[in-house]
Every structure is written in structure tokens, then in C-alpha cells.
Design a binder for these strands. Structure first.
Lengths: 214, 214
DNA sequence: ATTGGGGTTTCGGTGCGCCTAAATTCTGGC
DNA sequence: GCCAGAATTTAGGCGCACCGAAACCCCAAT
């Protein structure tokens, strides 16, 4: 229907990402910060996206995706995560190195190539950070998750996903052999005990990036 | 030095491509036709490229790449051909289907990913159409070649490359099992005899797309 | 030597996505 | 209830790459 250029795709993706693990709606200024653009640029794009029926927006209010917008957004996220999975699985990238490359390729790869990659990977359900890969129809399988920083002491759980927003957190965790699937018990704030009995101290930044089973 | 956006890369690539198998310089109007843009658009971009020292141009005259421009151009061509080779070699594409995808990806893939692909393919010297893949330093290994349409009857030779400009020619030749490396004798105009004795009639369009050993 | 027509350039204008600066609107604290 | 400060929008502008129309240049044929 609508053309949806690369820039517009980034707006939709970012609006979607904000509500993927939280419930509150994103504000224009928060969107501007995430995208690294001026607030006035957001106002402009928001007008276009609303006119195309991809988001809803009351003046001076927050932003929400429509069903059509969510479909576009998940399509972009699907591309992004499949590309990340491919870069790690086949092209020798580490999980802290894939974000920027995927950020660009997600806007230029064709559906055909994407599906060829998907097939080669065996139709993965999660990307290297544990994030679910949306299906082609936009459905996303997302288990209930809690931020490690919000988990109660004594909680026994497994790592579900780690936000890829901060590469240094990813490198730090990789060095500690902590990744999606890692089982642990929270023995004290910021302290986890792994299955083999070893304990690890996690930084506040990491605890705010790690989502674990409820 | 200069930024060189996707559009500028297309201009440089097209100027380079014109002189790869011929010696005459390209004119602005021919460039406009190849790129599918208006002549006035070419004038504008030519001014910028000349100002950046990537091409030389006297008003109302033809265009030529400088050394710097040729280096940029071959870098783009290198990307294009490696991507094509990868799409055919690993992603299940046929050689008549790769052009459009490569046309887009050549502007967005990183050097790192390109070299990962290159290594995976075993550092190929030619793309699926027989075109040489420029080295990273811009060198191109190009054997002397003659257009099949210009070859003399009785000429015994092998197919070197087939221009990918016309996908229908590629499909037609693929169906006839003619590709780079195919050995033959030109028994009459537009008629070739293959190594196994079978003869094939090629269309004028195909004869104008096939380059053979001299 | 002139001239006509094709190739090239100039000129004014478009859409996109971005910016800064200046309104405007909303909201929380008094 | 008011009002300062923060968030948002409006207004004006920029660079890029494109366009069509009009002006211009050049050469080949007379």
C-alpha cells in the first residue's frame, strides 16, 4: 500500500521495539532520542505515518502502532533478527558485532534472499540475543519475562534475552559465558549463581539489559 | 576523502562498465539512458564527481574516470560481482536472477561482510557471467575478448563472458547450456557447433552479448 | 559559410528527511 | 488556579537527487 522508505521503517521498528518488553507507549521525544534525530523531525514523520494509517497520534500525545503499522514493524524486526542470526551463525560475527550491519541490510535485502537465509538457518525462532524472530504474518512468540534488575533474591530462572542496545554489556556477558539459556539463581542483588556453582557479579547496566523467565 | 553516496557509486560504476570491454568514452546522454535518468541529472552529478576529482569532463565532451574514480568504480564492481557469485553459489539463485539484488546490496554491505563472503567462496576470480572480479586494490584481470557477433566464421573459441544486461538472453542461453567456459566453433553467422557436435543457433541479441576468446 | 538539429547545460522547481529557532501546549508544584 | 519549565509543534531552510522546459553549443550537411 504505502511505500515505507528506510527512514519510515526505522521509526516503526523503534516504536514497536519500545513496547515489545514494556507496556507504556513511547513519546515523540523518547523516539527522537532513540533515533538520534531532532524532535521536530519526529513530528514530521509522525504526521506522514499517521496519514498512512500506520500509527495513531493525538497532538501532544504519545504514539501507538495501528495493526497495519505493527505488521510493517514486525516485518522489519524479522529482517533485522534473521540477518543477525545469519551473521553469527554463518558469517563469523560475534553477537556484539551484528547490530550495525543488520541495521543497514534490513532495509535492502529482498524477501527472496531473506527467505533463502531463513531456510539455510533452519527457520530459527530466536536471534543470538534471545529475541523472538517474528513470523512472516507478524505473529511474535514472546514468553513472559522479568528484568534481572527487578527479580527477587532467591529467584531461580534462565536467561531469556539480552538487549542488544549496549555492545559493551554484550561483550562483558560473553566473557562471563552468560547468554540466552543460561540457568542461574539470584543469590543477592546483582549476584547470580550458575548451574555449575560458580557465582558471577553482574553490573547494574547488565542487570538492566537481561530478561529472565518469570 | 569524498563521501560517494549510492547514487554517485552508480554513476561511477556505469562509466567504468562502459569502457571495460570497449575503448570509446561514454557520453552524458548514453549515461543518462543506462541509468534511466534525465540528461540534466547527469550534468549535475557529473559536476559533483568532477569537483571531487573522480572524473574528468570538458563541457559538451565525453566522460572519463580519473585514477581515483576508477578505484571507486572497481570497488563497487567488486562488490556487485562478489554478491552475484555468492547469490548463485550459496543462495540458490540462477544467473539471470542475481542482477537486481546485487544492484541494491552493493551499496549497503560492509567491507567486513564482503570479505567474509569472499573467503567463503574461496576468493573467486570471476562472477557467474564470466566477468572478472576486481581485486581489492582495483586491479582487474581481463583477457582479450571478441564479441561473438564480430567473430569470423570458422573461429574456434570458448565463451569468456556474457553481458548480464538482458536477463532474457541469459535465460535463453542457460536453456541451451551455454555459459562461460563453453567451447565451440563458429560454423556460420549466428551458428555455433559445441564440443559434443551439437549445433546451436544464437539470436542476434545473444551474439551481441557473448564475448569469446580471441 | 551558414544553418539545423541533436547533444548538453542552465534554470526553476519537487519530494524527502533532516536541522534550528521560535511559537505553542501541556503539566506539576505552589 | 496559576505559572514555570518541559514537551511538542510550527516555520523557515538545507542538501541530495531527481525532473521538464528553455537556452545554448557544436558539427555535419548543404
Amino acid at each position: 500500500m504505502t511505500h515505507t522508505t528506510g527512514a519510515a521503517e526505522d521509526y516503526l521498528k523503534t516504536i514497536y521495539a519500545h513496547t515489545e518488553w514494556q507496556t507504556d507507549l513511547i513519546t515523540p521525544s523518547a523516539l527522537a532520542v532513540r533515533l538520534g534525530v531532532a524532535p521536530s523531525s519526529v513530528t514530521e514523520m509522525v504526521k506522514k505515518l499517521a496519514a498512512s494509517g500506520l500509527i495513531t497520534h493525538v497532538p501532544y500525545g504519545p504514539l501507538a502502532l495501528t495493526d497495519a503499522g505493527r505488521l510493517r514493524a514486525t516485518a522489519v524486526v524479522r529482517r533485522h533478527r534473521l540477518i543477525e542470526t545469519w551473521l553469527v551463525g554463518e558469517m563469523g560475527y560475534d553477537w556484539d558485532q551484528v547490530h550495525d550491519e543488520a541495521e543497514i541490510l534490513e532495509h535492502s535485502i529482498s524477501d527472496r534472499l531473506l527467505e533463502a537465509i531463513n531456510a539455510r538457518l533452519g527457520f530459527p525462532a530466536h536471534d543470538p540475543h534471545g529475541d523472538p524472530i517474528p513470523a512472516a504474518d507478524g505473529t511474535v512468540l514472546r514468553p513472559p519475562a522479568v528484568l534481572l534488575a527487578d527479580a527477587t533474591v532467591g529467584h531461580r530462572a534462565a536467561v531469556l534475552r539480552i538487549s542488544d542496545r549496549d555492545p559493551s554489556v554484550l561483550r562483558e556477558l560473553a566473557a562471563d559465558l552468560i547468554g540466552p539459556g543460561t540457568e542461574f539463581t539470584l543469590s543477592a542483588p546483582l549476584t547470580i549463581v550458575l548451574a555449575d556453582g560458580q557465582s558471577r557479579l553482574v553490573t547494574p547496566a547488565a542487570a538492566a539489559s537481561i530478561w529472565v523467565t518469570a
